[in-house]
Design a protein around this nucleic acid. Structure first.
Lengths: 150, 150
DNA sequence: TATTGTTATACTCTATAACTATA
DNA sequence: TATAGTTATAGAGTATAACAATA
């Protein structure tokens, strides 16, 4: 096959980002499917375990997703008995989100597999490069978020 | 607001990538909407201008998208008279994709705006860091694509 | 009045199977 | 038989408006 190239697009950092992200998606989905999780449910479970008791608004903010999109994600996690919505005493409008024992166990297994999978992405990088990459990606996110707010 | 953090997730390169990409999306969409383009139509137009005469299979491969998803994108570009499907003499199954004059002009304007927008993402980076970022993102994409093929 | 969770809805991107016409 | 373009379809993520219960 003739190997064409998108040399114009490749000059854009935003496009480079999108291609790298997109390429990584297949492997991530494949790993998570072994645990009957999707990216949205895994990331929500992760934050809930990291910050037990937070409410849906806080979780949505942490994940940078909209509140309405979270409802079905938590529904799924609750149906699978990985997470529980507990009524908050302080504010009866809100639910405090807590992981179950089953949720913690599944999270540990899934995370082990995710870390292994994730390591394939940075194969060939030195530790110094990995640290720099993380720093630059965070800078981009901050730049974009600040830019968006204006 | 209490500033919670997703420290578990943030250790994963794949998640760092996704957050940076996602954060950049709003600005890109906003720029492209001024030209009545979307990411999919802009990137297709870009490749067609870069490689005039290529067919839809080649374009899909270059953009790493599936052939069926390209059909409506080209339909839109053709309806807007930015691109033309020309019957290929060599292979009457295939269309050769060519930009129109209008397509080239709109692409130039949109690209100027896109480059300006894109520069905000790498604000605060040295030239050396920008080069390294591009190299590391390409490495990730290669690693992920290779990993996927297995 | 404002906020939490929710419902409804719509749009974009992505992915696969199967068809047609050509090769 | 294999390929290019297409159709149909379904899944996942994302975004906004509006509502009930509560603050």
């Amino acid at each position: 096959m003739i190997d064409l190239f998108d040399s114009n697009l490749r000059r854009l950092t935003g496009y480079q980002l999108r291609r790298a992200t997109s390429a990584s998606t297949h492997g991530v989905n494949k790993v998570l499917s072994r645990f009957e999780l999707r990216r949205s449910t895994y990331s929500s479970l992760s934050v809930i375990i990291n910050q037990p008791g937070l409410n849906q608004r806080q979780l949505a903010h942490t994940l940078a997703i909209e509140r309405p999109n979270l409802v079905k994600i938590i529904d799924v996690l609750e149906r699978k008995q990985l997470v529980k919505r507990k009524l908050s005493n302080a504010d009866r409008r809100a639910y405090a989100l807590h992981p179950t024992t089953k949720g913690c166990e599944l999270y540990q297994q899934a995370t082990d597999a995710m870390i292994t999978e994730d390591a394939t992405l940075t194969r060939g990088m030195s530790d110094k490069e990995k640290i720099m990459l993380a720093r630059l990606l965070q800078l981009i996110e901050n730049n974009a978020t600040q830019h968006k707010a204006k």
